[in-house]
Amino acid sequence: MRKVLSALLIVLACVLVPLGGLSAWAKYEIGDTGRYVDTMAPLATGPGVRDVIADTVTDGIMSEVEAGPLEREVRAYVHRAVRSFTGTDAFHAAWNTANRTAHDAVLRALRSDREGAVTLDLAPVTAQLKSRLADDRVPMADRIPVARTEVTVLRAQELNSLRKGFHVLEIAGFWLPLAAVALAAGGILLAVRRRRAVTATALGMALGAALLALATVAGRALTLDGLPAHVPRAAAGAVYDALTETLRAATWFVLALGLAVALATWLTDLRARRRAASAVPVPAPAPEPTRARA
C-alpha cells in the first residue's frame, strides 16, 4: 500500500511541474505590470521593433504631407530621421509609457466585471512623441495628427473567455508549485526505497520541464502562424521571446536540476549497494571428511 500511494503522489507531483511553472509565470511575470514593462523595455532597442515604429510614424507623417514628385525622397528622409529618433532616451520613455498604459488597461478589465472591448487612447503618447520629434527638429513632425486614436487591445469576446482563465491562473500560480513540492516530499517519505523514489521524482520533474519547453517552442510557432498578414513576424517573435524568457530559463533550470539529482542519487545508491555486497562475509569452505585408516 505504501508503494502504491508513494508512486501516486510522485506521479501527481511530476504532472504539476509544467502546470505549476506555466501558472506561476503567468501570475508573477505576465500579471505584474512592473515586470511586464521591464521585460518589454529592451525591445525598444531591437531592430525589428524600431523598424515597425519607424514605418508606422513615417506613414502617419506622410499621410499629412503632399510631397508631389519628391514623395519618395521625402519619405526616405523622414524615415531616416524617425529611425534615428527610436534610438534616443525619449523614445524609450514613450515606449515604456505605452506598454504600462496598455498592460494596466488589460489587467483592470480582467479583474473587473466590465463588459465590452478594452481600448487604448494613443493620443497622449502621440503628443509626447510629436513634441520630442519637434524638439529634435525632425522634418514635418509638427504635422503628426494628435486626435483621439483608440486602439482595440482586447475584443469583448476575447475578454470574456480570458477572464475565467486569468482568475484560475492567479490562484493556481501560487498553489500549484507548492502542491507539487508537497506531493513530491510526501511520495518520497512514504517510499520503501527512498533513494529510488528520489531518482524517480527527479526524472519525472525533468520530463515535465522538457514537455513545458517543447510546449513553449510549439506555442511560438502557433502564435506567429496565427497572426494577421500585416503584422511583422520578426517583431512579434521578439515580443514572444522576451515574454517567455523567464519561463524558458526556469524550465531549463528544473530540467538540469532534475537530471543532476537523479544522476547523483543513482550513483549514491549504486555505491551503497556495492559497499553492502563487499561487507557480506564469504562463507568458509566446509572441511573435507577424513577417511578411516585401514
Results as ranks from 00 to 15, higher is better:
residue 240 Y to R: 05
residue 215 A to L: 14
residue 279 A to S: 05
residue 290 T to A: 15
residue 267 L to M: 11
residue 263 L to K: 05
residue 225 D to H: 07
residue 276 A to S: 04
residue 244 T to M: 12
residue 200 A to K: 10
residue 220 R to Q: 10
residue 251 T to P: 08
residue 268 T to K: 02
residue 226 G to T: 00
residue 222 L to F: 14
residue 245 E to C: 13
residue 278 S to T: 13
residue 234 A to C: 04
residue 267 L to K: 07
residue 207 L to S: 08
residue 279 A to L: 00
residue 275 R to C: 03
residue 217 V to Q: 12
residue 278 S to Y: 11
residue 269 D to Q: 07
residue 231 V to G: 02
residue 216 T to F: 13
residue 246 T to G: 00
residue 244 T to D: 05
residue 264 A to N: 06
residue 199 T to Y: 05
residue 267 L to C: 12
residue 254 V to S: 05
residue 290 T to Y: 14
residue 287 P to K: 01
residue 223 T to Q: 05
residue 257 L to R: 09
residue 273 R to G: 10
residue 243 L to A: 09
residue 228 P to E: 03
residue 209 A to Q: 03
residue 264 A to W: 04
residue 245 E to Q: 14
residue 249 A to S: 12
residue 224 L to W: 00
residue 217 V to G: 10
residue 260 A to G: 06
residue 289 P to I: 00
residue 260 A to D: 00
residue 214 L to A: 13
residue 265 T to E: 15
residue 209 A to H: 06
residue 256 A to K: 01
residue 245 E to F: 15
residue 256 A to H: 01
residue 283 P to Q: 03
residue 253 F to P: 09
residue 232 P to C: 06
residue 239 V to C: 03
residue 249 A to W: 13
residue 271 R to I: 14
residue 264 A to T: 07
residue 272 A to M: 09
residue 202 A to C: 04
residue 202 A to N: 02
residue 281 P to V: 03
residue 217 V to E: 11
residue 290 T to D: 14
residue 244 T to F: 14
residue 277 A to T: 08
residue 256 A to F: 07
residue 214 L to D: 03
residue 257 L to E: 11
residue 243 L to D: 01
residue 246 T to F: 09
residue 217 V to F: 11
residue 241 D to M: 02
residue 277 A to I: 07
residue 250 A to E: 11
residue 256 A to G: 13
residue 229 A to L: 04
residue 202 A to W: 05
residue 237 G to L: 03
residue 270 L to C: 11
residue 288 E to I: 12
residue 229 A to E: 14
residue 286 A to M: 13
residue 286 A to G: 11
residue 203 L to V: 01
